[in-house]
């Protein structure tokens, strides 16, 4: 499986282009001179100590956070103050959150069809068919009429992934998707993500699952203090880290 992934070609087409991007929270310089290009079909894992700005970075990609300097171009659309551009990017980019953020007052099916109905203006029948398709893909079609509170954490996260997929996104962002899960549930979510990767989805994933990074990613980015410290192929990154900070981080995370 992993071998199949490695052989998959990455196209030359640019999916995300970030140039000289800076962001401050008040006076705190949270992202410093970020330059990054993501090709279509790339699977990128971002890791780093907590507070290093990795979540903020991917939240900038669909403008849940606003950047103050530099340029972010997603799928040919620059993120500016223009609401139309923001709407366009958000409907093309799916996002999965650490705490799932499913809508507790809606059933699973309603959670999945909500955005297609109201944002994409898809007919209800079609939206439901798509929803069921993705629900079977994450292997929980039988839960369609339950409420999120009745599902386990792992199931909820898979629903959240399916919810994003229903918008037929071209890019998926994962913000620590397994951090809030019990150990036995992590695998079912990771399996879903690997399956997604095999289908050629462009993915940016903030995670501490180093096994996942080694198996799936074609690039690992290490961030510290709001800047990109090192990026490399997974094999090189884990076996032969260049920067001292990376070495320290890896020794802490893999040391036991």
């Amino acid at each position: 499986m992993a071998e199949a992934l490695k052989k998959m070609t990455v196209s030359d087409e640019v999916a995300i282009q970030i140039t000289a991007m800076n962001k401050w929270y008040g006076t705190f310089h949270v992202l410093r001179d970020i330059n990054m290009t993501v090709q279509r079909g790339e699977r990128i894992v971002i890791c780093g100590p907590s507070g290093s700005g990795k979540s903020t970075l991917i939240r900038c990609v669909n403008r849940l956070e606003e950047h103050q300097q530099g340029q972010i171009i997603v799928d040919g659309t620059e993120l500016t103050n223009d609401l139309k551009n923001i709407d366009k990017v958000r409907s093309e980019v799916g996002m999965v959150f650490q705490h799932f953020n499913l809508f507790p007052h809606l059933t699973i099916l309603e959670n999945l069809t909500l955005a297609p109905l109201w944002v994409r203006k898809v007919p209800k029948r079609e939206a439901e068919e798509t929803a069921m398709h993705f629900l079977s893909k994450v292997k929980i079609p039988e839960q369609a009429h339950k409420y999120p509170g009745q599902l386990s954490g792992g199931q909820q996260q898979r629903v959240a992934i399916a919810r994003s997929l229903c918008m037929k996104p071209r890019i998926m962002l994962f913000d620590e998707p397994t951090s809030a899960l019990d150990p036995e549930m992590i695998k079912e979510v990771l399996d879903t993500m690997i399956q997604l990767a095999e289908e050629g989805m462009t993915m940016i994933c903030v995670t501490h699952e180093m096994g996942f990074a080694q198996a799936v990613a074609n690039r690992v980015i290490f961030m510290d203090q709001g800047q990109i410290v090192e990026q490399n192929e997974p094999k090189e990154f884990f076996n032969n880290p260049k920067s001292d900070r990376t070495k320290l981080f890896l020794s802490q995370i893999l040391g036991h």
Binding site: V14, Q17, T19, T37, I73, D75, G76, T77, E78, T80
Partner: peptide
Amino acid sequence: MTLAVEAP
């Protein structure tokens, strides 16, 4: 690599 769009 080329920029996807020109400057706004």
